[in-house]
Amino acid sequence: MSFNPLQERGIPLDRQLRNWRELDVAPIDPDHADPYTRCRVITMNGIEVEAILFSHQFNRHCPDPAVKQQLAEVRFIEAQQQKVVNWLLPGLSSVLETTIAYEQVAVDLTAWVARMEPDPYLKRAYQFGVLEDFDHLYRYANLYEMIEHRKAEKIVDNLTEVMPGRPTYLHHRHPIDNLREPYDRNATAPISKLHALTIMSAEQQTMNFYMNVGPTYMEPIARQLYQEIGLIEEEHVTHYESLVDPGETWWEMLLNHEYNECYLYHSFMETESDPRVKAIWELHLNMELEHLRIAAELFKRHDGRDPQEVVAPVLPAPVTFEPNKGYLRDLIATQIDYTTIGTGYVQEAHERFERYQEAIMGGERPASEVVIDDNRAKSGEEYRLETEGPHPVPSLRAER
């Protein structure tokens, strides 16, 4: 059934405020919850954090007191939504277990978006990035086995394979080579705008998470690995945010943010396996419909256009968390040896890439390589979770 969020009625804003008891939701059970329920929670936390940060930036650049008041009211509700969503994560899980779930999100959400993206250039950006997140999952899984003596299949539940992608040390590129060409806001498909905003928000939240939790570990190798991958997540945020047309007005960006929240809450309401969590997605969708209505009115008043000129007339097919094993193996077999130069992709290591690699390594082996050797020495072998037959052999350029 088609669903046009611009024509649906949501909960009036003055009825959306929740008290402490209502905000204090019980977390999901880490031992029995569907891993993809946790993935949906992590995704929506990133989406809500982006909504809040964007609204703050808009507030700092907006001279209109009436608009600032509307932004502040909606932003506080978004902050309540973020607390509910993020507090669904179980306190029983260690930081490293949550990290592995973050990387499962990065792998299966980005792979799904890459499969669904109609624009070849944007699709290539997602294919490039997912091979790096895939390798991060492998590095963190080995750290998990080494310092917590547990295996990542407990977290990913065989839905996502754990094995090498593009080696993490090859992700350190010159900053200008992380910039991409933006889509054309006047020509690109509405779904492409939603894809870009979704993956940018998810990667931004991963970057924020690693920046804050990395130094909480005592083990030197853990601190070093979070620092290394945290820097790469900054590269990924640059990579994905560059895809968004910088010519979008503040009103257009606000409209896209609110529409995307409706899209994702509706998607997850449609696909959620946990009835209690599904009810939260439904409640938040009904809140976001009102946020979208407010954004649409601001867009019409200040941008002078009809929102239907910018967003899809009905919600696209739901975003779906599902295994992407075959798709990822195909990418590993065909695209593992790519790096970037300017806004494009090349298979040869160019001079600027080599110089930056040498500078950032400082003559030392990176933590992402050391953690595999250390776990192999401690556990007898490195950790992998392969469920689909032999792992495709990467290019020789991926060996170190």
Rank of each mutant, 00 (worst) to 15 (best):
N86V: 01
S55N: 11
E48W: 00
A106K: 04
Y102A: 02
F54W: 05
F58N: 02
V25F: 12
L122T: 13
L122P: 01
Q80M: 13
Y102C: 03
D64C: 05
Q69C: 00
Q80G: 06
L53F: 12
L13S: 04
G91E: 13
Q80Y: 08
E48Y: 05
Q16P: 13
L109N: 13
Q70F: 01
H56E: 10
D34R: 03
F76H: 14
V84H: 04
L13N: 07
V85W: 04
P63R: 06
R18K: 14
L88K: 15
T37F: 00
A26D: 10
N59H: 07
A114H: 05
S94K: 11
P27M: 07
D119K: 04
Q70I: 04
P118M: 06
W87L: 06
L92M: 04
D29E: 05
R124S: 11
I47M: 15
P12V: 08
P90A: 15
D24I: 00
K83W: 14
A114K: 06
G46Q: 10
W112Y: 14
D119S: 14
S94E: 08
R15H: 10
I52L: 07
L92G: 12
D14R: 09
V107A: 07
L53I: 13
I11C: 03
S55I: 01
L71G: 00
C62P: 00
A111N: 11
P120G: 05
R40C: 02
Q80W: 07
H32V: 08
M116C: 15
G46C: 11
